[in-house]
Write a protein that binds this DNA or RNA. Structure first.
Length: 452
RNA sequence: GGCGGGUUGGCGGAGAGGUUACGCAGCGGAUUGCAAAUCCGUGUAGACCGGUUCGAUUCCGGUACCCGCCUCCA
């Protein structure tokens, strides 16, 4: 199966050929652990999880190395610690655990490696020393800065030129910078901030160097795929490329750069000021199953803005409920080739879901289950939410008896009364010649049946 | 100002230079005491203006509008 991916580096959809098919290597920028993951954080996690699953399917489960980091040194974390009085270690440990729990709840598999930045300080220092030695960086006043003018290709990924950006004039000008565009590799820490000893004094790394150091340590100087949200393209990924290529003396850092588009909520950017900001955990606590969140995320192609709406969640839940009932107790068959082919075409998850609809309509249940599982849907881990614990046999008998009586008397008022009460309590009422079938729905509320 | 993405039927949302996307909703029918569920049928949409072509919603150019990034952000 030939994968095709839209490479941000070339801005084209092109065939994907791994450097080493025995070890396909992917790095995705993970979260800065200072707070609960919001819904937008879940998008790349889910998108690249599907890619991870697809790569495993195509190249073999043991032939894919997926790295997603945790950034546990950052000024946002420091600020959170200062304002809450808690230790940095507490905050990052707790937030890391939350992230893993929340991502698991939406069906995201754990990557092979999940490095924490603070475990790679020595590698970062070594990389920075190398950059200085080669003339790509300079130390000044306890800072080390990357000399952007020394790297001719700077800006190539995001399509910017250094001169244009300076003309935009929104860059931080600092006295220790040779050039306004130079960015920080290392900065000094005061005693109250986390810091590590280095050739430039006690300090901490800049934002971008961690990814370069961890990617090199775990995946090598050049690897296959580097992913993340498209807001990271500049400056984060641009700076990663500059650091890695200059330090490693390579033409490229990654063969393919993939960027997912942003998430919106009811047509607007998710923001605290608009009051439409929420976390994955908020949705889960509202009773929206993680599988529904995942389905909605995958129903829009990753390169398009994804709009989260309550209506989509409702539709997704109905679809998943139907499919889960179909595949219940049935073993997955072979993964349908048509679905793999759709997914292989630049991760067309929306097209793959359409293929699932086709399989469901055709009654090809084992294929439906296998295909859904490749997308991380209809899995055992994400199941359970559709099963409502309720014994309604008493109600069914009562309704059936009333119905038999009504058939004779032609007075259906009691039947209609019972049916209305059951419907109001969230029960689906199915009456046929064979009898009465009651199916408790998602919002079943036994309390509403009391006294009927 | 610079860079990038988008505009498809009531809504969501794909693919493909010419033949039904698909889902939801709606409508018609079967079924039902009435419903629900299910099944069958039903929709000729692609911002605007040009160009290429026998033929474009699909390729090219332009216009308009929307969105994101350029500052921490996934």
């Amino acid at each position: 199966m030939q994968l095709r991916l839209t490479n941000s580096r070339t801005r084209k959809k092109e065939p994907f050929t791994p450097l080493d098919p025995q070890n396909v290597r992917m790095y995705v920028c993970g979260p800065t652990v200072y707070d609960r993951a919001h819904l937008g954080n879940a998008r790349p996690a889910i998108v690249f999880d599907v890619l991870f699953r697809l790569l495993r399917h195509v190249y073999g489960a043991d032939h894919v190395t997926y790295v997603r980091n945790f950034t546990d040194v950052d000024d946002k974390i420091n600020a959170r610690a200062a304002e809450s009085g808690r230790s940095i270690g507490d905050i990052t440990a707790e937030t890391t655990r939350w992230y893993l729990e929340d991502m698991a709840a939406v069906g995201v598999m754990e990557p092979i490696h999940m490095p924490r930045a603070t475990a790679y300080i020595a590698e970062m220092v070594a990389m920075i020393e190398g950059l200085i030695a080669k003339g790509f960086a300079y130390a000044k006043e306890g800072h080390v800065l990357f000399r952007v003018r020394a790297f001719a290709r700077y800006g190539a990924l995001s399509g910017r030129s250094v001169d244009d950006m300076i003309a935009g004039a929104r860059v931080e000008v600092a006295p220790f910078k040779e050039d306004p565009m130079d960015f920080v590799l290392w900065k000094p820490s005061s005693d109250d901030l986390p810091g590590w000893d280095s050739p430039w004094g006690r300090g901490r790394p800049g934002w971008h160097i961690e990814c370069s150091a961890m990617a090199k340590a775990l995946l090598g100087d050049v690897f296959d795929i580097h992913g993340g949200g498209n807001d990271l393209m500049f400056p984060h990924h641009e700076n990663e490329i500059a650091q890695s290529c200059c330090a490693n003396g390579t033409e490229r850092m990654a063969q393919v750069w993939l960027h997912n588009e942003m998430l919106q909520v009811e047509g607007k950017k998710m923001s605290k000021s608009l009051g439409n900001f929420f976390t994955v955990r908020d949705l889960l606590d509202q009773g929206i199953p993680g599988e529904v969140i995942r389905f909605v995320m995958l129903s829009t192609h990753y390169r398009k803005p994804m709009d989260w709406t309550a209506e989509k969640a409702r539709e997704a839940e109905a679809t998943l409920r139907k499919w889960r009932a179909m595949v219940d107790g049935i073993a997955a068959g072979a993964v349908p080739e048509a679905l793999v082919a759709t997914l292989a075409d630049d991760l067309n998850t929306a097209g793959a879901i359409a293929e699932l609809h086709r399989l469901a309509a055709a009654g090809e249940v084992p294929a439906l289950k296998a295909g859904a599982e490749l997308l991380g849907l209809l899995t055992e881990e994400l199941g359970g939410w559709d099963e409502v614990e309720a014994d309604l046999s008493g109600w069914a008998d009562r309704l059936a008896a009333a119905r038999v009586a009504a058939m004779a008397s032609r007075d259906f008022s009691e039947v209609d009364r019972l049916k209305a009460a059951l419907l109001a309590a969230g029960v689906e009422v199915r009456m046929s010649k064979q009898g009465v079938d009651l199916v408790p729905g998602a919002c079943f509320d036994a309390a509403k049946l009391e006294g009927v």
